[in-house]
Write a protein that binds this DNA or RNA. Structure first.
Lengths: 341, 341
DNA sequence: TATTAGCACTTAACCATTAAGAGTGCTAAA
DNA sequence: TTTAGCACTCTTAATGGTTAAGTGCTAATA
């Protein structure tokens, strides 16, 4: 569709605009990216690119600026080169995160910090949601007079606990028996499956005479309904230095976007099951507040199972090359680390 | 020191400046706050107040603006009136937080959201730090091949768990015995005390022949060193609408201030042991990035024991009256809720 | 036919100037 | 002691002129 020369000029414009936040003129392209063409020729080509929707002019007689479609073209033609920066990144990750292996929340929150420091954009991470984790073991422990603490062990290696109110008095022995029953019944099932089973059990309505089972079910009703994965964002002070957010309105939009955690979680969730780095540019985004931002994310996986998502949020004028490489390296590092434990 | 009339004029200036973000002129004060004095007289008094350091002029021939000292005077003379807004606040709190009682982290993060929504400033909260909690019970559970999960119950009602690496193979029975030993030894002690005891034990150096005790100690070495209380901040998009943060530099300072979690935690920590609402105005703040911000905080207590801190961060030109009332009401609400469980 | 040089035109950004408006300090009168 | 009046200061917004960057178009050129 685009011939070689046109393609190169488009990339040159995008690249230059990423490096310097001003509209790119034909002269600049001619000078900096020795095509052996005069500004006039390049002007013609740029006008074509504008017609095709890859570039646009902020106003008549300004230089050109990439559209989201232009960025998309550039990104697709990018091969994320594993450069020396990755070495530095890996060292950084080792130093900062190695000890956090067993505390997923801290791990993810520190990861966002590291990512944002290195990329100078926002670092984001979503910790694993419980519903596809499979239960390995449940322990029930007495706690205060009328409370039970359910400690849930899952194959994602995260220990979750939930406090349940329970008016009946039960000894630790009772609880152990119930836990034993639940383990035999549910271990190996995912949380989703367990919830389904419980609902079925409850609708069966057969008068459950077995006290143990009836108690077990009331416990389950609460225990397996856990909060969704958490969202971590950091690096606001990094992006405020970018000229893209020099204007108050932009900052407002950005902060509204990242404070709407619920929507961001849903967004990241969709991306958590794919493989490798994924990029969403500006208007490609379904989330209203994000239509002027780009996202570069990668799922973290332990084996095949998604265990969270990490990524970068920044302006559409983002250094995609470096962002991709940082996200990719970090996601792989974390995946490897989690697999090793 | 200040006569009645002077005091009233000072308060009028501060109040007006809080309501409208422009320097306050003598005419405005004369008109709006019927003192029965002409602008000229008020001008004289305002000049006096400036000499005394309660007001200042942004530039010659502008109206007056309160200094930090001026705000301080105003705040000290404020009686936080429990007004109808509190009723609304309480309803809001009931609706939003009641179900979260047993999940402290979610409770605190939701609280910041509620506070920021109501106050239109930043909501902050620090969840309890573990070091002054007293241990009620510890359970040790086998987990994967070489890991042990320590589940810690404390009198602040929070269940903490920590994963320990441990190369020796131990059965659940072994662990139960060790847990029993630890419970008999440490329950009723604060984490601080426990850490001290362990250190002492370790330096005793007497060849510990008892396998159980030696294992118990290695477990303790890890188990009782827990991450510090967490900091929650939300409501950035609220404050961005304030004229006080109309300028980029201010926003940068603010975001740097709240991203430096470590320092903020230290700051809040200091305030967590006092009683009731505390207010720090601008330059009174020891934290460099906060010298242009004000903080209104209150500890949450369960009985006598601090269990966290909640508060508001905003510009020095803050509606102190409403901020105080919101923080006070919320802190009391949470304290009561925690005590009831 | 594809490229280039030249030129008129557009626009934003910058600067200085101006005028309006708000508020002060000072002085003199009440 | 308070107030009225007035000259003065400073900010803000509007105005207009200039500059620099960059375009689109046309005509010449390889």
């Amino acid at each position: 569709m685009l011939d070689e020369r046109t393609r190169k000029i488009l990339c040159a414009v995008v690249k230059n605009y990423i490096d310097f936040p001003d509209p790119v003129g034909s002269r600049t392209v001619a000078k900096k990216y020795s095509f052996g063409l005069s500004p006039a020729t390049i002007r013609n080509i740029m006008a074509d690119l504008e017609d095709m929707g890859f570039l646009r002019q902020p106003h008549t007689s300004a230089g050109r600026v990439p559209t989201d479609r232009g960025y998309r073209f550039y990104v697709d033609s990018l091969v994320a080169e594993e450069d020396y920066a990755n070495q530095r990144l890996l060292r950084e990750l080792h130093k900062g995160l190695e000890t956090l292996r067993d505390n997923i929340d801290t791990l993810f929150s520190e990861t966002t910090r590291t990512i944002s420091l290195l990329s100078h954009y926002l670092g984001v991470a979503m910790s694993p949601k419980p519903n596809i984790a499979t239960l390995k073991k449940i322990d029930l422990l007495r706690f205060r007079a009328d409370r039970i603490a359910a400690v849930l062990f899952t194959d994602d290696g995260i220990i979750r606990n939930k406090v349940l109110s329970f008016d009946l008095h039960m000894t630790q022995k009772d609880l152990n028996r119930i836990a034993g029953y639940l383990n035999s019944e549910f271990s190996g099932c995912t949380f989703d499956e367990i919830r389904l089973k419980i609902l079925k059990e409850m609708t069966l309505e057969k008068t459950i005479c077995d006290n143990l089972i009836s108690n077990a079910i009331s416990i389950c009703k609460e225990a397996f309904f856990l909060p969704y994965g958490d969202l971590f964002v950091s690096g606001l002070s990094e992006v405020l230095d970018l000229p893209d957010f020099a204007d108050l309105q932009k900052i407002r939009e950005l902060s509204r976007a990242i404070e709407d955690k619920h929507t961001v979680i849903k967004l990241l969730d969709k991306l958590s099951e794919a493989d490798g780095v994924q990029i969403i540019i500006g208007s490609e985004n379904s989330m209203e507040e994000m239509k002027k931002l780009s996202i570069v994310v990668s799922p973290c996986k332990e084996g095949n199972r998604p265990i969270g998502v990490i990524g970068i949020i920044g302006p559409t004028r983002m250094n995609y090359s470096s962002a991709i490489s940082i996200v990719d390296t970090t996601a792989k590092f974390i995946s490897r680390m989690l697999a090793e434990r």
